[in-house]
Amino acid sequence: MFIQLWDLLIAFARASNFGFGGGPAVIPLIKIEAVERYQWMTDAQFADALAVVNVLPGPIATKLAGYIGYQIAGWSGSLSALIGTILPTVIAVIFLTAFLIKYSDSPILKGMLKGVRPVIVILIAQTAFDMGKDSFPNLTTWGIALVALVTLNWFKLHPALLIVISMAFGFLVFR
């Protein structure tokens, strides 16, 4: 039992902390650990797990970790896999955040942040572009995007509301 929890912790710590670029970069690494290295599940079972977590909102990697951990060793397995996934980077983030707060008046740090901000803007724009590639299969989806843009900017509609409304619309129209 303990060895299983330890394996889960290590497997997910390894997968998550070598994947740069958020959840999507982590998924193939989780597959290597769960399917190939520890053989906790087959390829098909991994595909099913991925299908389930993709349907639900929120970050992918933590859902996958919690789900696989639960399948292997119940709730404690779920917790073990989650800790492996988030704890190392959480500690690193807090370390950097504390550093950022402490030296927020330093001209060097200000300069570094000023230099990196445009890169972050481009990376986010790139995400939108990549997701956009297969999000507009027909004219109606362009219409949805246009309405979203207008209501967001002129009517200041909360994004969460927009998401709920669009899903209801899809349920009624695209079915």
Binding site: V55, A128, M131, G132, S135, F136, P137, T141, W142, I144, A145, A148, L149, L152, P159, L162, I163, S166, M167, A168, F169, G170, F171, V173, F174, R175
Partner: peptide, 13 residues
């Protein structure tokens, strides 16, 4: 159908 309709919104956001 629901996920298809939400995706353009996510892209816009």
């Amino acid at each position: 159908a629901m996920l298809k309709a939400v995706r353009p919104v996510v892209v816009v956001l």
